[in-house]
Design a protein around this nucleic acid. Structure first.
Lengths: 213, 213
DNA sequence: TGTCAACTGTCAGCGGCTGTCACTAGCCTC
DNA sequence: GAGGCTAGTGACAGCCGCTGACAGTTGACA
């Protein structure tokens, strides 16, 4: 019987409701602004009650970062998969570049890629969202620091290098994201190029004399 | 006549009201928790109406970061005052160490230093406050990047080094803050030592092979 | 088909935050 | 010193994000 298709009717309905809420919310946010959009409007656009919205998402912010979390776990997986002979910073560099390529495919099944890219700018231009984004990044960095420490066989609390290396990397990534969102060219190629350019600048930036460089 | 003392009666009254709100809020936050404390409770503790609270502070969060902003401007001033022959990262290092010493005196005029230090832990342990703290740090970093660029006679948008250097420094500082708040010894001496230790770890952390180090 | 559990809508309410309006009190001029 | 002017305040009403409680509906499964 094909009636017993994989997820079951109930499950599919839930999926559809969540996707509807997700798309409606992001569409409203990116066109009318995050704060100006009320939960009631989102619920109405998705044709459910406000109460139901909060059964699918912990809050207004949660919708925005739902897709972002997909990208994050892709990045974590990529870091874990890097060969252990690579230097820590090199592994992080390759993982983030590689992560960018894989994100598009995974995201597109849920929401249009173009809407996803608009969401990046929304986060960067909305103080409340940007703050949460940074906090999430900090948590991600802590997770990555543990992975790096494990790779190198170190105790993350005894040796400062894992956390410092990840902090340096994270700091550079944040700068990269900001400039990427501020520029015109919002494409994977653009962020790849920017990422490489900024990571290459770390060495020179720590040099004693900039003029001599 | 001494009756014509500098600020005028009205001004002094305002000052007292704001200090009362500040102290009451931080005291309630650090003892009962940030989210569990309502604005009504703060207003009542300071003996004003809720509406008045919002005339002094933009929101609940604003109270928490009021004192923090003092420390920030101290740091900015310290960076500006560093001699121009110092390398950028060295200037930042000296400025932050020097900033920690000066903060105590400036803060103590408004609230007890011990309450101020408790506030750090409050921020670090409250997700909403931590997120805002990171956003504020990001804004501060942008400001510092401009100062560094100016010091070196560079265009901050053409050369990635100023922003990258500040991002690296900021990343390390965030790690330092976290570990400091997590530890038992909340003292200026402790954060100075931690800061130095982590900044010294930047070089080794970027090295190709950690084992060989 | 009937029972159960999951899902949903409705309602009520709390807390953060804002606009409005009338009132008080410091300031300033004559 | 009496007057007006205005900053500061309290009281009230209301919006919005979010939560708990309860009842109705609809898939799942025997």
């Amino acid at each position: 019987m094909d009636t017993a298709s994989r997820p079951g009717l109930r499950e599919r309905k839930k999926q559809r409701t969540r996707d509807a809420l997700l798309r409606a919310a992001l569409e409203l946010f990116t066109t009318g602004g995050y704060e100006a959009t009320t939960v009631d409007e989102i619920a109405e656009a998705a044709d459910v009650s406000q109460r139901t919205f909060f059964r699918y998402f912990a809050g207004k912010e949660d919708v925005v970062f739902f897709v972002q979390s997909l990208a994050e776990s892709h990045f974590v997986d990529a870091v874990r998969a890097r060969p252990s002979h690579e230097a820590p910073l090199e592994a992080l560099r390759q993982a983030v570049l590689q992560g960018w390529d894989g994100i598009g495919r995974a995201v597109e099944e849920i929401i249009p890629t173009e809407l996803h890219l608009r969401t990046y700018r929304l986060i960067e231009s909305t103080p409340a969202l940007f703050a949460t984004h940074l906090r999430r990044s900090a948590e991600l960095e802590e997770e990555i620091a543990h992975i790096i420490a494990e790779r190198e066989g170190l105790d993350v609390d005894a040796d400062p290098r894992p956390r410092v290396a990840v902090a340096v990397f994270g700091g550079v990534m944040r700068v990269t994201e900001r400039l990427w969102c501020a520029g015109q060219d919002i494409s994977v190629a653009a962020i790849r190029e920017l990422t490489a350019r900024h990571l290459d600048a770390v060495g020179p930036a720590l040099a004693e004399r900039w003029r001599a460089g």
